[in-house]
């Protein structure tokens, strides 16, 4: 599914070079549930952005569903982001002037899906999040937990293979965060590959596979196949 081989990502800051990712190797199979933890600045977001094709590696190979995506042009990468990858951000990133349903429709709009079909699929995605009655609400009329669930509906409306979540509970209280994690785990249970970056060890510990990063390297990678999601 996902295969990172000797991935480097360097940033030049002034005349200093920061190794945000330093020779990372990582293989993730379809349907896995992976959490990425580590101290601030260890390269977690950089890793996730790279997997999500928002960023390009400085060196190394990245195979996504068997295809070498490091050599693809921008438009082709955009296409893969649209169809195969879903993002969930800490800051939700909903467009404030659009309703929940319109926000969920955005990826379909970019894909050129006709309006009627878009509406049906967005409604279904919102229903799956238990938000049917909030479809016409704008983000500022929703609670934090509801906003993040709208964002998850948007990330899953194109039925992607991979769901990438960077601190999805970072802006939420304990209770709302719990709800969001349960929604993500339910999606994983139905087959989507789920990668969650988090600071919260309670949340990170729920994943069947836990990756630990430090200074741009993977320092621990433990799997507990027998641990079922709570």
């Amino acid at each position: 599914m996902i295969s990172l081989q000797h991935i480097h990502r360097d940033f030049r800051v002034g005349d200093q070079i920061v190794h945000a990712l330093d020779d990372v190797d990582l293989d993730i199979a379809a349907g896995e549930y992976v959490s990425v933890m580590g101290p601030s600045g260890s390269g977690k977001s950089t890793l996730l952005n790279l997997i999500g094709l928002l960023d390009r590696a400085s060196a190394g190979r990245y195979l996504l569903e068997g295809e070498d995506v490091t050599v693809l042009d921008d438009d082709r990468q955009a296409w893969i982001r649209n169809r195969r990858i879903g993002f969930v951000f800490q800051a939700f990133h909903l467009v404030p002037r659009l309703t929940a349903a319109e926000n969920v429709e955005l990826p379909l709009l970019l894909a050129g899906v006709p309006p009627a079909e878009r509406g049906k699929r967005a409604a279904a995605a919102l229903r799956a999040m238990g938000l049917s009655d909030r479809a016409g609400h704008r983000p500022d009329q929703l609670s934090g937990g509801q906003r993040q669930r709208v964002a998850i509906a948007r990330a899953t409306v194109t039925e992607p293979a991979v769901l990438l979540a960077d601190e999805p509970t970072g802006n939420l209280d304990q209770h709302a965060g719990q709800g969001v994690i349960e929604v993500l785990e339910a999606l994983n249970a139905r087959g989507i590959t789920l990668i969650v970056v988090t600071h919260d060890s309670a949340i990170g510990g729920r994943a069947r596979r836990r990756v630990r990063m430090l200074d741009g390297r993977i320092v621990a990678d433990e799997a507990e196949a027998d641990r079922a999601p709570a």
């Binding site: 921008d74 649209n82 990133h93 970019l110 948007r154």
Partner: peptide
């Protein structure tokens, strides 16, 4: 900026 970044994350091409 954030909205444009979001559109890109959702698969918008530069031309779009």
């Amino acid at each position: 900026t954030a909205e444009i970044g979001l559109l890109k994350a959702l698969g918008a091409t530069a031309r779009q």
